[in-house]
Design a protein around this nucleic acid. Sequence first.
DNA 1: TCCCATTTTTAGGTATGCCTAAAGGAAGGA
DNA 2: TCCTTCCTTTAGGCATACCTAAAAATGGGA
Lengths: 245, 245
Amino acid sequence: MRLTSALEDYLKVIGEMEQNGERVTTQSLAKRLSVKPPSVTGMLKKLARLHLINYSPYAAVELTEAGRKAALEVIRHHRLLELYLREALGLPLYRLDEEADRLEHALSEDLEDMIAEALGHPRRDPHGHPIPTKDGRVDPPDGFHLRDAESGAQFLVVRVSDRDAGLLKYLESLGLVPEAVVTVTGKEPFGGPLWIQVAGRAHPLGDEAARHGFVKRVPERSESKDPQGRGGTPDQVHQRSQEPS
Amino acid sequence: MRLTSALEDYLKVIGEMEQNGERVTTQSLAKRLSVKPPSVTGMLKKLARLHLINYSPYAAVELTEAGRKAALEVIRHHRLLELYLREALGLPLYRLDEEADRLEHALSEDLEDMIAEALGHPRRDPHGHPIPTKDGRVDPPDGFHLRDAESGAQFLVVRVSDRDAGLLKYLESLGLVPEAVVTVTGKEPFGGPLWIQVAGRAHPLGDEAARHGFVKRVPERSESKDPQGRGGTPDQVHQRSQEPS
DNA sequence: TCCCATTTTTAGGTATGCCTAAAGGAAGGA
DNA sequence: TCCTTCCTTTAGGCATACCTAAAAATGGGA
């Protein structure tokens, strides 16, 4: 039976939160989905009736196996579309999420397959998020917060959050996007900015921005600017993952 | 104020019917939209309240200027998407309509512009339907029914109906698609089939199929197989049009 | 002119998915 | 233990867009 767009949205968000190791509560869902808590309660009951989540009043919700599969399908649609919009039409990073949000519910399985094929069965979207495979596997989100990176070292940007389009636009203007190499040159104390260097230019980066970028240690000797690494890195595939919060 | 998908669908269908010179009644809309007549009455009232159609009970409906503009926008989305899906992803003709029906409501104006740009601001969709321009102009649908074509002459297929995917798949398998050249070699009497020749092969074509193809006279001397004519032909642009029924 | 078949509208109902207001649980501090 | 605060759920409403059943209008033929 076909799910409604609204139910798909709930599943997608629950799936994303589980992937990030967040506790999925009525309130956190309400915030994330921009609806009021009573609406969430109603929708959770509906998802439970469809055996897509385990739900008992006042408890955190969990996807069932069927629910996880359905959620990953929606997430796959979303991330494939984001990559497609970027590659085929050249949309800027900060506008991908919104466009994909609307298109994802209208994408048929056939079209999904053709897009995946056209893109060469990619493993990461333009934000660096892993794209679930057709059979329901996902890489864990990798990298750690840029703000936890130590001074003086070089890092590879592996992922940026897509939660805030404005902030993303800003990061993009700095060149702080997946596959960029960033050097942390200093940290101002007392919540002050992080000094970073990207593409030869130095920028002070506020705390909120620094929390939206995720990086990996890059070996000192590697000076390559763009490792063309989409889908390249991890080979092992997990079903769940935890963020070191 | 943003229209709902359902209202957009009504506008699109009313617009298409007006373009084809059909009378737009409660019943014809109900058939075309696969809903029951009372549902249509309700939606027509809603469209009238928004000043998108002129509606008085028991009378045929007409688009207002604003309604016509809105309808053409939806039709533009639909036809641009069809062409895009064909050009970029290679979907077969007979599957374009259904996919575009779902995607058209999720297409932002920005994305529409980028797709139009990527396609070089085309004038015709893969079925041969004119694509309304951004500022609300449409070519009249051209060509006449294949079944009205006289024997012995050569014709250029300019348009095929997209109303029946099964039939379209059949026409496509014969090569009877826009820009193909077809020769009418004979007509069996008493509603019998039309004998046609496409790409060197002869086929008997039943009445229903023949009504779904639209052709133009092609000058005898022109032997060119594929005039690459997308968007090439008419220069004059009309706002309405009538089909010689 | 009247009647009857067809079309259209009205009336009332359903499901979805959101809302506000109010009631009911959970959980930590005194 | 009780109380207060915060979170969640229940109760009751609204808009959208569909449905069926029944009433009303239209329009052609006798």
